[in-house]
Design a protein around this nucleic acid. Structure first.
Length: 883
RNA sequence: GGGCGAUUGGCGCAGCGGUUAGCGCGUCUGCUUUACACGCAGAAUGUCGGGGGUUCGAAUCCCUCAUCGCCCACCA
C-alpha cells in the first residue's frame, strides 16, 4: 500500500490512469468474448467540433453506462468516431482558405478543394476526440470511425443504390428549402422557424375587365410580385367569387405593367378568406403553397430571385440585381409611387431560417434527389409495442408524431464535401451504380446530406464479426434536438438494412443551459470551456457536478458551482481514504461477526440501502438520483457518522477490535469506490490502488484496474444473517445519533465553544457497553462522560432525554430557565399536534379499513414514537419547573 | 393552431398518493476538534403558482386559469 499524498493532484493522476488504461487495452472490445455484450455507439461529433457542455453531459452518461457494464462482467463496446459534417466543414475550410490565401473554393476547383479539406481534417480534425479522452471516455479508440472512411463511404453509396433500385429514391424538380448563403438545398429539419417582426403590405390591383374595380392584396413579400402569375381567391368567398376568370394588371415590374401585363384571377380552396384581405397573390416560383396552387391551375412559373438571393432580370429594371430584402423595400416604394400601396402594417410572422447560415431560407424550385423513407411502419410499431423504449417516455409520442407526418427527404446537397451521389449521366442516359460505367459518363455533381450517412452509423461502423457480437446496440444516448435528424432515421435504416432495430433503449438528455436558462452558445459566449473546467477542477469533478444536477430529461442549468461541489466531493473522498490508510493494518481483512459494533452494523445496512437505491436509479437512467444517493451515503452517513464513531475503536488499544473495524471500513470503502467508479473514474482508480484493494482480474487480462472490479450487489439475506444485521440495529444506532445531536445542542445552548472539551453526565436507560459510552464521548467532543445511573439533573442544568438515557451538561446557571421552558412548551405543542393528527387518522374507520396493513402499522409506530417523545419533553419540562 | 415540459425556502433543484416536504449553494452562530477550512458542529428560512375537484389522506391524481420555456404546423 503506497502512501496517499496529503493533497490529491488530479492533473497528473488523471493523465497517468488514462495512459494506463490505454496501454492495458482496457477499453478494447473483444467480439470473441463469451461474456454478454453491451454496446453503445457514440453520437459522432462533427470533425470540426470542439468539446462543449452538451458533449460533457452526453458522453459522461455513456461512459457511466459503459464502465458500469464492464464491472458487471459484460463485454463492452463503446464505439467512437466523428462525422464529416458536410456544410459545417466545407464552410470552415472555405473561410480559412479565403483568409489565408484569398482564394475561393471555385478558384481551387473541386478536386483540389476536397484535398484541402482532407488535409485540414488530418491535421486539425478530431480535436474533440482528444478532448473526450481528457473527460475519461472509455471508448474503444481502436475502432474509431469517420463517416468518410472508405468502407463507410461504400456503405453509404450502396444504400443509395439499393434505395434507388427499390424506387424509394427519385429525382425531381420540386420546391425545396434553399439556403442563399450556403447555396444548397436543405431538408425540412434543417430549417428553423423564427418569429420575425416585419411588415404586411397591402396593395391594390385593378380588375382588367371591370375598370375602376380594385382588389386589395396583403403580402409580406412585395419583391416577389414580378413572379406572380395569378391572383387567387376562395371560390366560396362571396365578396370576390364573381371575379374568378377575370384578370388583373400585375403592377410589377413596372415596365410590363405599362404594357398592361395581365394575370388571371383563379379560385382555389386553399385560400383562407379570413386572412389578410382574402385575396392571395400567387408566386409559384417562390412559395411552397403557391407552387402547389400553380400546379393545380397550370400556372406559368417565373423565377425572379437567383440562387444567391438577388433579383434577376425578370424582376424588372427597378429590382434587378438587388438583394432580396432591399428589393422588398424598393418594391414597396415603387407600389407607393404608382399609387397602389394601400397601407403597411407591422406584422409578425414565422420565417424559416437556414440552421447553418442563420439566414432566411428561400423556397426555390430546383432539381433534387428525394427519398421516400423506408420501414416507416415498422419504425412506428416498435415504439408502440415498447420494443423501442424512450427515456424519458414522453419522447415516444414526439417520435411517433414525426413518423406519422413524415415527408419525403431532400437528400441532395449542392456542396463538394461529402458523399457524392452515385449516379452517372451520359447525354440523356442515367445510371445509378457504385462505380462509373466508363468513358463519357459524368457523375452527378451533388453530395448527400450528412445525415444520409449518419443514419447508418450503428451498423456501418462495424465489421461482420463485430456486428455479430455487438449489434443491435444496447442503448443510444442523444440530445433531443437530433431525435428526427438522427435517431428516428437510424431506426428506419437499421430495420431496413439489418432487419433489426439498432438499439432497444433511447436515452434523451436535457439541453445544457447557462444559469439564467439560456441555451449555451458560442455567440452568447456563455458556454464555459469544459477543458478549462477540467484544468481547474478535474475531470471527475466536472463529471460529478454535471451528473448530480442533470435529472432525467430535464434541461441542465449549468453553474460552475456544481463543478466546485464535485471537486469538494473528490477531496472528501480522498481524505476519508487517507484516514483509513493512516490507521495501517492489512487491506480488506476478514470481518468477524461477533466483533461488529452497533456502528459497524449501521453502516453496513446503510451501504446496502445505498447499493439498492443506486442500482434501481441507474436501471432507469436516473443518474442524478444515483449521484445524490452516493453523495448522501458517503458524506452524511459514512464520513459524518461512521468514520467519527470508529475513532472510539481506533484510539483504543484493543487490537482485534481495531482490525475488525478496519476490515469493515475496507469493506465499505471498496464497495463505495466501485459504486463511484463510473462517475469518478480517475480518483477511484487511484484510491483503489492506493488502498491496495483486491485487483479482481489477473493482470494479463487487463485486470489491474478498478474498471473490472465486481459491481456491488445488495447485501443479501445470507450476508445479513452471517453478520447478524437487522433493522433494529439501524434504529437503535439512529436513536444514538439523535441523542448526540441533542447533546451537541446542549453545548450550544450552554454557549460552549465547539472546540472546548467539556464533561457530560449520562444517566443511561438500559445499560450500555463501554464502547457506546466512548462513542458518545468522542462524538460529543467531551472531555469525559460520567455514567451515573442515579444522577438527577438539578433545576437549570441543561439536559436532554431519550429512550437511551438522559444526557446532562453539568454547567449550572448557564441556561435561561424561562427561555428553555418556552422552547420546550413550544415543542410539546408541536408534538401534541402531530399526535392528534395521527390519532385522528387511526380513529377514522374509513382510513383503517381501506389502508394496507403496512401503512397502518407504520402509523401506529409513528404514534408510539411521538408519544415517547412527548413523555420525554414533559419530564424535562417538569424537571425545570419542579425544583 | 396543435403537442410537450416547467412553476416547491434568497437562488438552483429532488420528491410525483401515505414519516415532522428533502438536497446543494447562499445566509447566520461557533470552531486551525492530529482525514478533510475544498472542512467540522449547530441554526434560520416553505399555507409546494391561483382556483376547483377526486380521496379517509394530495406538493404528488383530475379539471381549470396564469406565467415562463421548448417542439411541431404551407396561413400569404
Amino acid at each position: 500500500m503506497s502512501e496517499l499524498p496529503k493533497t490529491y493532484d488530479p492533473q497528473t493522476v488523471e493523465a497517468k490512469w488514462y495512459r494506463h488504461w490505454m496501454e492495458s487495452r482496457c477499453f478494447i472490445a473483444d467480439p470473441k468474448s463469451t461474456k454478454p455484450a453491451y454496446s453503445i455507439v457514440i453520437p459522432p461529433p462533427n470533425v470540426t467540433g470542439i468539446l462543449h457542455m452538451g458533449h460533457v453531459l452526453n458522453n459522461t452518461i455513456q461512459d457511466i453506462l459503459s464502465r458500469k457494464a464492464r464491472m458487471e462482467a459484460k463485454e463492452v463496446l463503446w464505439l467512437p468516431g466523428t462525422d464529416h459534417a458536410g456544410i459545417a466543414t466545407q464552410v470552415m475550410v472555405e473561410k480559412k482558405i479565403k483568409k489565408e490565401e484569398k482564394l475561393s473554393r471555385h478558384d481551387l476547383g473541386r478536386e483540389k478543394f476536397i484535398d484541402r479539406v482532407w488535409e485540414w481534417k488530418e491535421k486539425h480534425g478530431g480535436i474533440i476526440i482528444e478532448q473526450l479522452k481528457r473527460l475519461g471516455a472509455s471508448c474503444d479508440w481502436s475502432r474509431e470511425r469517420f463517416t468518410m472512411d472508405p468502407a463507410y463511404s461504400r456503405a453509404v453509396a450502396e444504400t443509395f443504390v439499393d434505395l434507388f433500385s427499390k424506387g424509394l429514391i427519385y429525382r425531381g424538380k420540386r420546391m425545396v428549402n434553399w439556403c442563399p448563403v450556403s447555396l444548397t438545398a436543405l431538408s425540412d429539419e434543417e430549417v428553423n422557424m423564427k418569429p420575425q417582426n416585419g411588415l404586411m403590405y397591402y396593395f391594390k390591383v385593378e380588375v382588367a375587365e371591370d375598370p375602376g374595380v380594385f382588389l386589395t392584396i396583403a403580402t409580406t413579400r412585395p419583391e416577389t410580385i414580378p413572379g406572380d402569375t395569378a391572383v387567387a381567391i376562395n371560390p366560396r368567398d362571396e365578396r370576390y367569387a364573381k371575379y374568378i376568370g377575370k384578370h388583373v394588371v400585375r403592377p410589377l415590374p413596372a415596365e410590363l405593367a405599362l404594357e398592361k401585363k395581365l394575370i388571371p384571377i383563379i379560385g382555389d380552396e386553399q385560400v383562407d378568406f379570413e386572412f389578410g384581405t382574402g385575396v392571395l397573390k400567387v408566386t409559384p416560383a417562390h412559395d411552397k403553397a403557391d407552387f402547389e396552387i400553380g400546379q393545380r391551375h397550370k400556372l406559368p412559373v417565373i423565377e425572379v430571385i437567383e440562387a444567391n438571393g438577388t433579383m434577376n432580370d425578370l424582376a424588372g429594371s427597378d429590382l434587378k440585381g438587388e438583394e432580396r430584402f432591399k428589393a422588398r423595400k424598393i418594391a414597396a416604394e415603387k407600389l407607393n409611387e404608382l399609387g397602389l400601396l394601400v397601407k403597411e402594417e407591422p406584422y409578425q410572422n414565422n420565417v424559416g431560417f437556414s440552421e447553418r447560415a442563420d439566414v432566411p431560407i428561400e423556397p426555390r424550385l430546383s432539381e433534387q434527389w428525394f427519398l421516400k423513407y423506408p420501414s416507416v411502419t415498422r419504425a412506428r410499431e416498435i415504439a408502440q409495442t415498447g420494443e423501442l423504449k424512450f427515456f424519458p417516455e414522453r419522447w415516444q409520442k414526439v417520435y411517433e408524431h414525426w413518423l406519422a407526418n413524415i415527408q419525403d427527404w431532400c437528400i441532395s446537397r449542392q456542396l463538394w464535401w461529402g458523399h457524392r451521389i452515385p449516379v452517372w449521366y451520359r447525354g440523356s442516359e442515367m445510371k445509378c451504380q457504385l462505380d462509373s460505367p466508363g468513358e463519357g459518363w459524368e457523375q452527378d455533381p451533388d453530395v448527400l446530406d450528412t445525415w444520409f450517412s449518419s443514419w447508418l452509423w450503428p451498423f456501418a461502423t462495424m465489421d461482420e464479426q463485430t456486428k455479430a457480437k455487438f449489434y443491435p446496440t444496447t442503448v443510444l444516448v442523444s440530445g433531443p434536438d437530433i431525435l428526427f435528424f438522427w435517431v428516428a432515421r437510424m431506426v428506419m435504416a437499421g430495420i431496413e438494412y439489418t432487419g433489426k432495430q439498432p438499439f432497444s433503449d433511447v436515452y434523451l438528455t436535457g439541453i445544457v443551459r447557462d444559469k439564467v436558462g439560456r441555451k449555451m452558445s458560442k455567440t452568447l459566449g456563455n458556454s464555459p470551456d469544459p477543458l478549462d473546467l477540467i484544468s481547474k477542477y478535474s475531470a471527475d469533478a466536472l463529471r460529478f457536478g454535471v451528473m448530480r444536477s442533470a435529472p432525467l430529461g430535464q434541461d441542465v442549468l449549468f453553474d460552475e458551482q456544481h463543478v466546485e461541489l464535485g471537486r469538494n466531493f473528490c477531496t472528501k473522498l480522498w481524505n476519508a481514504c487517507r484516514f483509513r490508510q493512516m490507521h495501517g493494518g492489512e487491506s480488506e481483512g476478514e470481518i468477524t461477526p461477533s466483533l461488529l459494533t452497533s456502528d459497524d452494523k449501521w453502516i453496513l445496512l446503510r451501504l446496502d440501502r445505498a447499493i439498492r437505491e443506486i442500482n434501481s436509479s441507474l436501471a432507469e437512467y436516473k443518474f442524478n438520483e444515483a449521484a445524490q444517493t452516493l453523495y448522501r451515503f458517503f458524506w452524511s452517513e459514512f464520513c459524518d457518522w461512521y468514520l467519527e464513531s470508529t475513532k472510539a475503536v481506533l484510539h483504543s488499544d484493543h487490537a482485534p477490535q481495531k482490525q475488525n473495524t478496519l476490515a469493515v471500513m475496507d469493506f465499505v470503502l471498496s464497495h463505495t469506490l466501485r459504486l463511484f467508479h463510473p462517475f469518478l473514474p480517475f480518483i477511484t482508480e487511484e484510491l483503489w490502488h492506493g488502498l491496495g484493494y483486491q485487483l479482481e482480474l489477473p493482470e494479463n487480462q487487463g485486470g489491474k484496474s478498478i474498471m473490472f472490479a465486481r459491481w456491488p450487489k445488495e447485501l443479501d439475506a445470507q450476508f445479513r444473517e452471517h453478520y447478524g444485521l437487522d433493522e433494529s440495529d439501524e434504529q437503535w444506532t439512529q436513536a444514538k445519533y439523535d441523542l448526540i445531536v441533542a447533546g451537541r445542542n446542549l453545548r450550544r445552548e450552554g454557549n460552549i465553544q465547539s472546540s472546548k472539551r467539556v464533561k457530560f453526565i449520562f444517566k443511561p436507560g438500559p445499560d450500555l457497553p463501554a464502547y457506546e459510552i466512548e462513542v458518545f464521548k468522542i462524538l460529543l467532543n467531551a472531555e469525559s462522560l460520567e455514567v451515573d445511573r442515579s444522577f438527577e439533573p438539578r433545576k437549570g442544568m441543561p439536559n436532554v432525554q431519550s429512550p437511551l438515557g438522559t444526557l446532562c451538561l453539568p454547567l449550572e446557571g448557564l441556561v435561561d430557565i424561562e427561555a428553555e421552558k418556552a422552547r420546550l412548551t413550544k415543542e410539546l405543542e408541536k408534538i401534541s399536534l402531530e399526535i392528534k393528527k395521527v390519532e385522528e387518522k387511526l380513529a377514522n374507520p374509513s382510513f383503517t379499513s381501506k389502508v394496507p396493513p403496512a401503512v397502518l402499522e407504520e402509523h401506529r409506530n409513528r404514534l408510539v414514537e411521538w408519544q415517547k417523545k412527548q413523555e420525554l419533553v414533559r419530564n424535562a419540562l417538569k424537571g425545570l419547573s419542579s425544583e
